[in-house]
């Protein structure tokens, strides 16, 4: 069973590395949006460090939205989604593997470039720690929630707008708690409460979302 998980992740990563524009697009978008803000707003460090959490999180959210299109679409078109649904392994388990692969391709690069962007936006050290933590917890939640929307819209020809309509309301709590945590950190207050709330959301998403996604896929593909 674990073999199947590894196989799904491995083939998704392999396919993505051979098709590089697809993985580079969302992360490029993220970096470009964040670096344009200091150019547009001037380089006043107090202003930048005040709006940095919002900018980084909004850009991360949009980059995630941009990347969802690919999550099940290619598989749907070439028929491997159908085949995955006929595998003797539980669909929710294979779907979890796909989402993990998706997070490695989109969430992880955002985490990796975040120190650089924190410097651009003159974030202080403790605010950056909070930003990193919220991204670490928040991006997997985004991937899991987004996948529900993707699963519901995968059979539609133009599901993109519908997908963002389904997904944005669910991602707003993550955005609010994350930016509040970073704000608290930049004032030197404790932000553990917000992190705990985000962790609770993550646990809920990891345990429940795969089943919702599997059920949504069964509906969409029929």
């Amino acid at each position: 069973m674990f073999d199947a998980f590894v196989q799904v992740v491995r083939q998704d990563l392999l396919a993505a590395f051979r098709h590089q524009s697809a993985i580079l697009n969302p992360i490029w978008f993220f970096v470009i949006v964040v670096t344009l803000f200091p150019l547009g707003l001037g380089s006043d460090p107090t202003l930048l460090s005040r709006i940095a959490p919002g900018i980084i999180w909004v850009a991360a959210l949009l980059a995630a939205l941009l990347s969802f299109e690919r999550l099940f679409k290619d598989d749907f078109i070439d028929g491997s989604l159908e085949q995955m649904m006929l595998s003797p392994y539980p669909l929710a388990w294979l779907v979890s593997a796909k989402i993990f692969g998706h997070w490695v391709l989109t969430g992880l690069p955002i985490l990796l470039v975040s120190p650089l962007l924190a410097v651009f936006l003159s974030l202080k050290m403790d605010a950056f720690c909070a930003l990193f933590l919220t991204l670490l917890i928040g991006t997997p939640i985004l991937s899991l929630l987004g996948a529900i929307g993707v699963a519901l819209t995968v059979g539609l020809r133009k599901g993109g707008i519908l997908l963002s309509l389904i997904m944005l309301p669910f991602s707003i709590p993550i955005l609010i708690f994350s930016t509040m945590a970073i704000e608290a950190a930049s004032f030197g207050q404790s932000y553990l409460g917000f992190i705990a709330l985000l962790l609770a959301m993550l646990v809920g998403a990891i345990t429940l979302a795969p089943f919702a996604i599997a059920a949504a896929l069964r509906v969409s593909v029929s």
Binding site: A4, L14, R18, D78, Q83
Partner: peptide
């Protein structure tokens, strides 16, 4: 069950052998 549909479920980015390996690991 082995099902072959209109769409063959072949990933175009993967090589022939990798495609077959993926079938081997995900199905009985």
């Amino acid at each position: 069950l082995l099902y072959l549909g209109h769409k063959s479920g072949i990933k175009p980015e993967l090589t022939v052998l990798e495609n077959l390996q993926s079938f081997q690991r995900l199905y009985s």
